[in-house]
């Protein structure tokens, strides 16, 4: 039973209030018709299954009904951070202790790292 900090409610709340919605940062291709069948298949069906730090999409279903992202360690189940839609994680597999700085260059490289 996880204890999850909802970034919109600003509180830790019981797992029973949430629904998990799979891997985070899976963006729908802006022009689906320009995708090859393989690209579209990748978007639809292929997901990461890392041992370690993972970014997930959750919704506070019995609460504020907002979707948000969770950085969770798949071995320890520790939740390292939660962040709102549209935001990027500060903790990633490449930077498990958190990003060294928040400058623009870092932000850009980070985006690539999480397949946003």
């Amino acid at each position: 039973m996880l204890y999850i900090h909802c970034p919109y409610c600003g509180e830790l709340r019981e797992e029973e209030e949430f629904h998990p919605k799979g891997q985070a940062h899976i963006a729908r291709p802006l022009d689906p018709d320009a995708c090859s069948d393989e690209e579209w298949g990748d978007y639809l069906f292929f997901r990461d299954n890392p041992r370690g730090i993972h970014h997930e999409l959750w919704v506070h279903a019995v609460g504020c009904r907002k979707f948000f992202n969770v950085t969770r360690h798949t071995v320890t189940y520790e939740i390292l951070e939660t962040y709102r839609m549209g935001e990027q994680p500060t903790i990633t597999a490449e930077h498990p202790e958190g990003r060294p700085s928040r400058d623009a260059a870092d932000q850009a490289s980070l985006r690539e790292g999480v397949r946003a």
Partner: peptide, 10 residues
């Protein structure tokens, strides 16, 4: 005030 789980409903 909060929205939360009550028994098996909300």
């Amino acid at each position: 005030g909060v929205t939360t789980v009550f028994a098996k409903t909300t």
